[in-house]
């Protein structure tokens, strides 16, 4: 469990260091994901893929991801800091968020299904 936590923190730390060292305009945890993926791939190659999928890193990751909602709460409570700004732009914000969310869902699902269907219709029937 501690080994898994260490691996996640180390990848995040390495991500933050790389981003700052090369002045990349990308958040540290993004590079952290890439590094973690590389570590898992390497682990899977050296042992077995199952070892990487169910190992200590995966166990800690599952625990974190299954309670992901909780980690958004402290930032979300920050809404109380922005009542003024949010009320002043209430209509624009609500319309932008609702319309953009509905359209993004529909556009994404639409493109996914369209390409999925094109791909399976092109593939020769076995």
């Amino acid at each position: 469990m501690l080994l898994g936590l260490f691996a996640l923190l180390a990848c995040q730390l390495a991500g933050e260091v790389i981003v700052r060292a090369f002045a990349w305009p990308v958040p540290g945890p993004v590079i952290g994901i890439v590094l973690m993926f590389a570590v898992l791939t390497l682990h899977g190659h050296l042992r077995k893929p199952e070892a990487a999928e169910q190992g200590p890193i995966a166990k800690v990751a599952d625990t974190l991801l299954s309670n992901l909602g909780l980690v958004f709460v402290p930032a979300g409570v920050g809404i109380s800091q922005h009542y003024g700004l949010i009320l002043d732009h209430g209509l624009a914000l609500v319309v932008a968020l609702v319309v953009s969310t509905v359209l993004t869902l529909l556009v994404t699902v639409g493109v996914f299904r369209l390409v999925s269907r094109l791909q399976s219709s092109r593939r020769p029937v076995p």
């Binding site: 936590l5 996640l8 923190l9 990848c11 995040q12 991500g15 540290g28 945890p29 993004v30 952290g32 994901i33 890439v34 590094l35 973690m36 993926f37 570590v39 898992l40 791939t41 899977g44 990487a52 999928e53 890193i57 995966a58 800690v60 990751a61 599952d62 974190l64 991801l65 992901l68 980690v71 958004f72 930032a75």
Partner: peptide
């Protein structure tokens, strides 16, 4: 949030 973001590599893998 940070480690939980890095943890996304696992479902990706």
């Amino acid at each position: 949030l940070g480690p939980a973001t890095v943890a996304l590599a696992v479902p990706l893998y």
